[in-house]
Design a binder for these strands. Structure first.
Lengths: 209, 209
DNA sequence: CAACAATATGCCACTCAGTGGCATTCGCTT
DNA sequence: AAGCGAATGCCACTGAGTGGCATATTGTTG
């Protein structure tokens, strides 16, 4: 065995990553619906049965980059120091930390592909939204356990606000079509979006013309 | 022909409603996954092919009550008077108006069944989230057309805040397990949740114990 | 009322995502 | 080298969703 991890485990990780990369490539060039799982599995030389031991659905494999980031976010929250800060600020910091942790160049490229796919593919978009929502519920469970949160709407609303800001940031980041997507720029956009939250509460609108 | 609407149209509406009611009943008693479309179609005496001319998916038929409300919301926004109010307040008013318009007793019962199903069924939850999100995009298109909105994050964040408040309200409403679900109570919960939005921005949390 | 156009429905065969069961292979331990 | 457990492959199956075409039902026109 080499470098810490058992061989079997490394092999699994390689298979998993190969499936993700092949999926993003194939979906990216021929569209999500234009590729069957059989084709994807042939490409990676894996049986369809095995695919479903790694991923819960066809959508799931293409969402992996985002899922990895949220997983890091959850882990970070377990040990984050509340420090008397507002809840939203605490979550923002944890999100930025998670992003910083996973967002190397390879991740940024995959995340960009993944996000663009999900905006083109209704079923992927739905899965992504669902994943964010259930992750946020897990977040609130952790926070309720660790902090003395009130039992009213505010914690959940704050969580949904963070998700809204995150999605807006991701949207702008993906729209700025660069060849070299950059994790730090995404982080900056997250900060901006969170900063825009208070102003959106009282934004007034005049009729046009 | 009777009372305005052509006979053919009424027949279609009856078939549609029969499918919705049968779906909510069957899914409610045996679970979403415990009922096949063939069974549902047999129940209503309609071919599976016809089912898919009314609904885009198995999930869709069980989301109909919520979809109807959002449709009314969209229509209301087309003519709503901005009146110099904050955007969020404008959307809240339109949501409450739409709710008031569609929420008779029959609707409340169906909406309750529908929401509970979607909380038990991941694929339905995902579809619901996706529907809310794309509806909110349509909302913003309308508002950008009618009002002089800034081209930054704030309008979208405000929209997502309304959705967050709506979902929280629905959650509490459905949890208060009543035999006679009431549309007016849901409206009150929406008002409360929207009112809680500002406070959630700066909510601070002390460590437990 | 008869013939016609338009639209809604039914039927059939098909693709493909996802699952269960079981035999096989592979990595690890002793 | 032998044996254990985990990962994989293979096969058959269910069920959602679609396309094509024939049929029926409604609305319209002479």
């Amino acid at each position: 065995m080499t470098a810490g991890s058992p061989l079997r485990e490394r092999k699994k990780q390689r298979t998993r990553q190969a499936l993700i990369d092949a999926a993003l490539t194939l979906f990216g060039s021929r569209g999500f619906g234009g590729v069957t799982l059989d084709e994807l599995c042939d490409e990676v030389e894996v049986s369809k049965r095995t695919f479903f031991r790694y991923f819960a659905s066809k959508e799931d494999v293409a969402m992996a980059p985002l899922e990895d980031m949220w997983r890091a976010f959850l882990e970070g929250l377990e040990t984050a120091d509340p420090d008397g800060r507002p809840l939203l600020e605490l979550m923002e910091a944890a999100l930025l930390a998670a992003l910083d942790q996973v967002a190397d160049d390879a991740w940024a490229g995959r995340a960009l592909l993944s996000y663009r796919l999900s905006r083109q593919t209704p079923s992927m978009d739905a899965h992504t939204l669902h994943f964010c929502d259930s992750t946020m519920r897990a977040v609130l469970e952790i926070l309720h356990r660790r902090l003395d949160l009130p039992d009213d709407a505010r914690p959940r609303l704050a969580g949904d606000m963070l998700v809204a800001a995150w999605r807006y940031a991701l949207d702008g980041w993906a729209a700025g079509a660069r060849d070299r997507p950059d994790g730090r720029e995404l982080a900056a956009r997250v900060r901006d979006a969170v900063a825009a939250l208070p102003g959106s509460l009282h934004l007034t609108a005049a009729p046009r013309g």
